[in-house]
Design a protein around this nucleic acid. Structure first.
Lengths: 146, 146
DNA sequence: AAACTATTTATAAAGATTATAATATAAGAA
DNA sequence: TTCTTATATTATAATCTTTATAAATAGTTT
């Protein structure tokens, strides 16, 4: 599964004329295997061992490239740094306000809201963003123990 | 209407034991009258005339206080700085990807999504966030003229 | 293999936000 | 009203994320 995603992603890069470098390969692979929606710095630190000379700028540059090609989504929550998510299928996120954990959940999509927004405002709507906030089971349990 | 909002907001501050300073008064008033979802710096610049000695930190501090008390919502989009929105009634935003304009629209709320998320993930859901992206009529018109 | 162009690296710069410490002030008590 | 005290403001510096720049490197095409 992950292999397929990686292969498809590399094909996308090839088709778009984006060069496949070892760094790009590694960043993509890390994003696909990571279930944690990492920040740019997370990725940088994770690949430090394999690429001792890699620059943070490289990570940022390539995440931007991936975003522009549609492989990666950038998540900007309130906290300081953006998180990056490899795009697979339509899903949303629940975010724990206690520990920051992000969990995926699937939902049919909110076409109806987009249509209403388009109708009311006259915008040509292209997409939307939605996320749910709350407290994860672990944090709830911790609270109970006090 | 705006007067009412301001009065209610000041009452909220009083009830919460937050001191009402001239700066806070001015920031709240500006937020209520502003239809533009300003950044901290917008507010800072707008009040420069009235408070020549006011520090940016004051603006940030007070926006945080207002957020904690529930008077203000912080909007974090992809672009560099947060925008702040006086909380009135349940509404969402459409954001123009061309010029950045933000327009409000009302929608019943997405309780169903929250419930599904809670059920699937085991989270105690508290709230959600949603916004729609597209191109505003003005930007569409500009494009056509080329 | 040579040439061309995109990418990486290293570093500096920019920009937003927060921390700190000294000063000033709001709000309640005397 | 004046006094008192905790809180807020100011000025400044520091931090942190992200972007810009220029030189060096490495893919890709011929």
């Amino acid at each position: 599964m992950a292999q397929t995603h990686l292969k498809e992603a590399l094909d996308t890069l090839k088709d778009t004329g984006v060069r496949i470098t070892p760094q790009r390969h590694a960043i993509l692979e890390y994003l696909i295997n990571s279930m944690t929606h990492p920040t740019a710095d997370d990725i940088y630190k994770a690949l430090e061992g394999t690429f001792p000379n890699m620059s943070v700028a490289t990570v940022y540059n390539n995440l931007r490239v991936f975003r522009e090609v549609g492989l990666v989504k950038e998540l900007t929550y309130g906290d300081s740094s953006s998180r990056f998510d490899f795009v697979t299928t339509q899903h949303y996120h629940v975010i724990c306000e206690g520990c920051g954990k992000i969990v995926d959940f699937h939902y049919p999509g909110l076409d109806e809201v987009e249509q209403l927004a388009a109708h009311v405002t006259g915008f040509k709507v292209s997409h939307h963003r939605m996320e749910v906030y709350g407290e994860c089971p672990e944090c709830s349990k911790k609270k109970e123990m006090h």
